[in-house]
Design a binder for these strands. Structure first.
Lengths: 208, 208
DNA sequence: TAATTAATCACCCCATTGGGGTGATTTTTT
DNA sequence: AAAAAATCACCCCAATGGGGTGATTAATTA
């Protein structure tokens, strides 16, 4: 009834690539339809391979994995891309996810977990390594010890939404001068003197 | 050598509470130090229980789980809070995480996974149910079919950072009039006529 | 209870900004 | 060859933003 999960591997290291290939190819229900050592090599033929899931490395010669994601998605709009890399930098992780990666595993991940994640991603899940999940969750968390009051935080949020003083005043049913006053206090507390700097500081310190 | 993981359960449903209590209490290496049916009940005594991990429900009489998170964190700064609930709304999930929850599981989660997640959270991980992970990852993903050009997207990002036209011009080494021109085109494409509306539309459509 | 902090509003000043027009040139992509 | 993207130019003017300085009334904390 159910077809094997078709997997393509894009990874420049020969040893790792054949390792994954062997692992997946010998697992019941999985099938490696192709493997490439670069995006450029994959681009030429992958549209015919029609994989369900692509295992993608980030560090590669030529087009790197991050930039390869949108290009692969264009070639195969319904493919699920699972990043499998040694990198754990926040920037790379979020860029990969923003570009359309469906999951992110680090290379120390156990074989069983990789196999499980391929299935999970194919079923619409979002597999992540423990450490990745930690970073992702942390990125959501607000600073619990903000120097700003509730009202100030509320107003700063509106500033981040690009609202003008008068717009904020209307929405919060307070006077324009009150908004001004709050913003001035925010500037003092954050030690800034412009909207742009306030937003920057607020984001850096997760005050919003 | 290693102490049992001390767990507190806060959950208003008696049946579910004793179910979890039984499950965790009878697992090697885990210990239920206390269980409460509301935040109010917990607040009085939990500081003495000193749990490592709190299993917290969202739907509860009195203070709900979301609002209870920061309060519990104040009472026990080093506690890990694991949300265990039936709710899967994006809003609740992100609010819970923003408030400091370390993980988020839905109640259909298998017993073994719950036990594993408690350990994971105590070790600094960020356990999530598959469906939650999916939503979290989706929240990062940009719209791949933006109506905006690269330059326009770049400029809109700066607008979202609260930058003025002249600041953007300086940063991108282009003329102020060019920035103006781009912003005007962005407004036309997004069918808006102010920064605030552009930011709103951009966020709603994940163009940034 | 006393002292802070938070939240509200007021009026001064003025350079900068933002948004609406209209139009043109050059490079890149299709 | 045509379309889209990126660049720059000049018109207009109300609204905005940031800098001062200061006051009143809750609410919270010491």
């Amino acid at each position: 009834m159910s077809r094997n999960i078709q997997v393509t591997i894009i990874e420049d290291d020969d040893t790792i690539r054949s390792g994954y290939s062997f692992l997946i190819g010998n697992t019941e229900g999985y099938e490696v339809v192709s493997s490439y050592c670069s995006y450029e090599a994959a681009a030429l033929k992958i549209a015919n391979d029609k994989p369900d899931v692509i295992l993608l490395d980030i560090e590669m010669p030529g087009t790197n994995g991050i930039d390869a994601i949108p290009k692969l998605k264009k070639l195969l709009p319904h493919v699920y891309i699972l990043i499998l890399t040694v990198y754990e930098s926040e920037k790379l992780i979020f860029e990969a996810l923003a570009n359309g990666a469906a999951g992110y595993l680090t290379k120390n991940t156990a074989s069983a977990k990789i196999i499980e994640s391929i299935k999970e991603v194919k079923e619409g899940g979002g597999p992540m390594s423990i450490n990745i999940a930690k970073m992702v969750i942390k990125s959501f968390q607000k600073n619990q010890e903000s120097p700003l009051s509730k009202r100030e935080t509320q107003i700063l949020e509106q500033v981040c939404n690009g609202k003008s003083r008068s717009q904020i005043a209307k929405e919060l049913f307070i006077d324009l001068e009150t908004v001004r006053s709050h913003i001035k206090n925010i500037y003092v507390k954050l030690d800034v003197n412009s909207r742009a700097d306030a937003i920057k500081t607020a984001r850096e310190n997760k005050l919003i």
